[in-house]
Structures are given as structure tokens and as C-alpha cells.
Design a protein around this nucleic acid. Sequence first.
RNA 1: GCCCUCGUAGCUCAGUGGAUAGAGCGCUGGCCUCCGGAGCCAGGUGCGUAGGUUCGAUUCCUAUCGAGGGCACCA
Length: 567
Amino acid sequence: MKPLSHHIANLLSEALRAAQASAVLPAFEPPTIVIERPKREGQGDYASPVAMSLAKALSRKPREVAEAVVQHLPPAPFIAQAEIAGPGFINFTLSDDFLRQQVETIIALGDDWAKLDLFVGKRAQVEFVSANPSGPITVGHTRNAVLGDAIARVLEAAGYQVQREYYFNNAGNQMVMLGQSVQARYLQILGQSAELPENGYQGEYIIDLARDLVQEHGDSLREADWKVFKDYAEARMFAWIKRSLALIDIQHDAFFNENSLFENGEVWRTLEILRENGYIYSAAEWEGASEEEKAKAAGRAPAQWFRSTRFGDDKDRVLVKSDGVPTYTLPDIAYHRNKIERGFDLMVNVLGADHGQQYKVVANGIRALGLDPSKIKVILYQMVRIMRNGVEVRMSKRKGNFDTLDDLVEQTSADAVRYHLLGRSPGTTIDFDLDAVVKQSNENPVYYIQNAHVRCAGIAREAAARGLDDTEADLSLLGQAELKFLRKALELSEVIELAATEYEPHRLAYYAQELAALFHPLYDEVRALHSDVEPQVARARLRFYRAARLVFRRVLRLMGMSAPERM
RNA sequence: GCCCUCGUAGCUCAGUGGAUAGAGCGCUGGCCUCCGGAGCCAGGUGCGUAGGUUCGAUUCCUAUCGAGGGCACCA
């Protein structure tokens, strides 16, 4: 299905054509037709300012243009009326019958309701988390995970076939450090004096890993190479990361090892293509360096530089250091080349704001390869601060500081973590207030929304207990309050479309809150099982609540949250 | 210094160039015998500042002030 706004835009296009054909309006290029949801009641369900935007070019008054358009609107079963209002808006009101019919549509489609075909046949990839396997998933990574997974869900709902990928950064110096750190801890436990490498990992979890190794292998690894420790640590970290993500119901379809790009030579192949294209030079310092910088670099072996400045960068970038080891950037460019060659129609990268600059270099690299980076969308999100009693809880590598996903879930809940990290646009810094989130009260939107589902489930339970049936309900017995809810439910398609095309899944969180805010007073007023309610009316209302429950379930699942039966 | 984000209600934040800018939290006062209290109803003087584009700007552009992030032969 498509959002109703698309159907209405089509009606307007046809009306404009018809008005031109009958010479009521002069010829003009068909404009982009904007459809919006009016903010106030009495302004219909959908509105278009198209007449106002055309008025000037046509030298006609906006309301006259609107008049011409409305007169040529083709009939549509879902529209009850189209009227001109205010400065020249055309307001559309949905028909009550159409709205009532949505109850059966929702029940028939269930979890597939509001699944759009906007991108049917298209393949999208969402790369997210991609945290180094050198430590646990932190709160910052968790925002990345929640955002990426929600974008993936929303893209699926919009019609894409989606692959979730994790770029596993298991090559390079960091992994050496990881291996050597575990090795040092291992030897220390065995009573041998061993120093952590400079810039080694000091976390408590490194000691845990070493302790486990002692338990499993005793002192037999005393003479072992650091690589043995690295492989062990990597495998353990990988398992830990997956387990943490599973806590908030996140699974990736693919894990792409950075290592593989070295093993199959793609890293070096990428460098060669760049060189062939004239973007690589060998020098001790970049060509635009100041005298001071050049003096500092004097005597250093040459590195391989990428002419990033050709694409407007401030300076050229090192791809291969003077010791022959690539920087992070080269495999990253190779990885994106690999991605592009896999033929996705859309590639989404979810990155922390601190990586924004880095991606620009990668994008320049992609251009230098002669490839087009336009199918890659980068979603930058700001940092997360953990607050307790209004004071920031400082991140620390030591344990017990609420800085891991595991701790966060333990302190709050998977649903609360997802809702609160999803509920803000990526561009804002989040202060994650543990006290507010832990608080399981009516002030917490997580429970407010879930309770709507619980209440629907409660009605169904009670109806079943009383042996009541809701089939063949006469939906004409539903009142305006129910129709109001259905109008809002119908808006989900537009929310999905917007969230998918703008990569802004936080819109779902707001929508869910609004939907629940419409539901609760309704639940209060429109009783299904009250003794005053006529049996036929009760039947229709039971049918309605069955549909409402499915709508909440759908919305909660889109946010990766659970839809509980009871609380 | 340069680049990127962000300044909207007491606080935390929504708001695709359109009609009277919205939620949540906090605060105050009311409301439930039957599916339900993690509920319902009522209470509001706010778009950082200055220009510009436009029929119309919280939204786009420029400047300015303020906050955060980034400016490695780290990832």
C-alpha cells in the first residue's frame, strides 16, 4: 500500500490536468504537490497549499485557483469532502465509512498493516554499531545500535529488502594491543612480571579474560605468541558484543571482517586503483604542509598520501604510513568500494558525530576511485551523557559505572533503553537520566504507550472469559471517538514514509506517544463490556479494540519494543 | 583559527516554506462500584540576536552570540 497522502496528491494532479484541459487554468509545468496534516480540528484530515504556490505564476488569486482545482477533482471513495479554507488551502476530509472499514483492514493485515511498497524490489544495507572488538558495547554504541536497527525496521516497512551489517574492525594496531594486553594480564596472574603495553587496555574485563584463560589452559600459554591471546580475546569480545545487542533485540545479518580485506588483497587493490587514477603520491609530508611541518617530517621515510584536497579537503591524508602499515582510512575506503560493488540501492552508515570528518575523507576516496557515493547516506548522531540526580556519571573504563549496554539494561529495561535512545532526533545530545528512566510510573512514556496495548489485551481476555464474539460486527455503530483514533492510526504510513526517507526514526516515538494519548481517554469513555452497552455495540467495539491492539503492536515492534499482555 | 551539529515553555525535547508553534516531565485542583489507577479531565505570557530571500520563515541564506564535537603517519 501507499500512504493516503500519495493518493490525494494524485487526485490533485488529475484535477490540475483536467482544469488545464478545460482551459479553466492556463498551461504550466505540473508542480510538486505538497500534502500535509492540518494541525487543527475543523481543517480536515489532509490539506494542500498547492493553489497558493501556483497563484503567483498564474496571476490569479489563490482561492480562485483552489476553486478551479476542487471543481475538477475526480471522485474518490475515501474522500467525504474537499473544501477551500483560509488563504487558499484545499482541505480533505476522509469518509466515515472508509475509516470504519480500516478496522477490518487492520485485522486482516495484522503485522503487515501499514507496510508500504514505496521501495519494493530495492535492496538497502544498514551498517551500524561497528564498534571495535576491543571492549564492551558502551552507551554511545547503544544509541548507534538503536538508531540503526530502527532505521532498518522503518526501511523494511517502507518496502526495502534490508541487510543489517556490522563492520568488524579486527585488523590493525588495536587488535595487537588487545592481544598483548590480555597476554600481559595472563602472565601477571601466573605471577610473572609483565607490563601492559603502552596504550594497552586497562579495563577490568581484560583481567577477566586472562583469568578464564588460566582456568582453561593453566600455564601452558606461558610461551605462546600474542596472537593466540588476540584470537581468544577477539572471539570472546565478538560473543560479548552479540550477546549485549541481543539484550535489546538487535541482530545483524552480516559481520564484515576488516581482516578479510587484507587477506583477499582488496586493500592493496584499492590503493593501486587510486594510484592509477592519479590520487596517490609518496612523500614524507603532504604537499601543502607548512615549513614547520616539513621540518618536523624531515628524515622520515615516505608515506603514501591521498590527494583529498582535490575534493576540497583541508589537507591530503595518509593512507599508508611510513612503516608500510595502512591507516584506518585505506581499508575503510576499500570496504565502501566493496559495499558499492555489492549493488545496494541504498547504503546507510550510522556514525557518531566524532566520525563525521573521517567519513568525508572516505567519501573523497570513493570519488577518487571513480565511484558514486550518493547512494550512501550517513546518519550522524550526537553523544549520550548518563545522568544521575542531575549530575553526569562520568564514563570510565572501570566496571560498575553504567557505561555499558549490559549495565544500562540491568538498571532500566530493554524497552526503556530503546524508547529513550530512539526518542530524540539524531542531531541532539542526549542526557540519559537513569532516575527518570528507571521510574516505572505513569510519568514514563514507555509504560504509557505499552499500557495502551495491555488495555486492549485486557479487553480481549475479558471478552473471551465472558464468551463474547466480535465477528460480523456492525462497524457503523462505532462513534466519532473511535473514528478519531482510526484517523490517527492511518497516519502511521506517513510517519513510516517520512522516517524512512529522512532517516529519522525518532518520529515513530513521538507518533506512538500521540497515538496512546488519543487512546487512553477513548478507553475511558468508550466501554466495550459495560453493562449499559448494547450487545451489538459491544460487538463493534470489541472489533475496534482488536484492531487498536494490532496497531499498537505494530508501532511497538517498529521501535523494537515489546508489546506486553499484562503489566 | 578552520569544519560539522545544535540554540523553541521552568526542565527534556517535537515541529516536511504555510492557516491560532506542540508533547512529555514538574507544579496545582478535580474524577473511578461493572474491560482499567503505569488511567481520565482542567490550568501556558516560548522560536538566541540582527539582517536577507518569499505572497508567507521556527523552517532557507548571511552575519553575530552561546553550547557540544572534530581538526594525527589513532581508530
